[in-house]
């Protein structure tokens, strides 16, 4: 191997390690910041909780939207955060606040269906007659996404509805980035098949 090429490789590796290190450090700082927020919430700081709400509300919204009718989502988001506020001290790993909120949101969605009286979900479609075509299309796509397996459904809602990147989804839900990437690609493939879109 020529010397110049070797030198280039070394520089490449060094640069890559520096990038990875910087990224990891940034992530650690961010996680620490969230953990600090939780600490402050445990101390009764409502402003810190407001900050936590601002960061994680889209995540919780997406998780609940993947399961529950749209009209109920807002209330359930509020309930999830209220429950989190009450039980903030029971969170052992302060860095895993995102995964903890996701867990609460999933449980709350299940409870919603358990407590709800058996009704047919027609209100959304009927009310959409008054709206424009964009909303109708959105609801159709959302219905197609909800029909997918749960893992793909959540990831796609967070990506397409909430507009989060794969990295953000991984960081906030506590999933591995590789898993999120796989879920995104497989879910997207299934969604294309459902909607009849050719790649």
């Amino acid at each position: 191997m020529p010397e110049t090429e070797m030198t280039g490789n070394i520089f490449y590796l060094a640069r890559r390690e520096t990038n990875v290190g910087t990224k990891a450090a940034t992530q650690a700082e961010k996680v620490t910041a969230e953990a600090l927020l939780v600490e402050r919430v445990c101390g009764g700081d409502s402003a810190a909780f407001g900050e936590l709400y601002r960061i994680f509300a889209p995540l919780v919204h997406g998780i609940i939207l993947a399961r529950v009718p749209r009209g109920e989502v807002e209330d359930l988001v509020q309930e999830v955060f209220l429950s989190a506020y009450k039980n903030a001290a029971s969170l052992r790993d302060r860095n895993a606040v995102g995964a903890w909120l996701v867990m609460i949101a999933r449980r709350r969605a299940v409870e919603f269906y358990r407590q709800a009286k058996p009704t047919e979900e027609i209100s959304e479609d009927l009310s959409s007659n008054t709206g424009d075509n964009t909303q109708t299309e959105a609801r159709e796509i959302l219905a197609a996404i909800r029909a997918l397996p749960e893992t793909y459904c959540e990831t796609l809602v967070l990506r397409l509805v909430e507009g989060m990147t794969g990295q953000e989804i991984a960081e906030r839900t506590g999933l591995k980035p590789e898993s999120v990437r796989v879920n995104l690609h497989r879910g997207m493939k299934l969604l294309r098949e459902k909607l009849g879109i050719e790649e």
Binding site: A57, P58, H61, G62, L65, R70, V77, T134, Q135, E137, A138, I141, L142, L160, V161, E162, G163, L191
Partner: peptide
């Protein structure tokens, strides 16, 4: 296109 369509449901 999907992103634009679903934007109305965004938080």
């Amino acid at each position: 296109r999907l992103e634009n369509a679903l934007q109305v449901l965004r938080y």
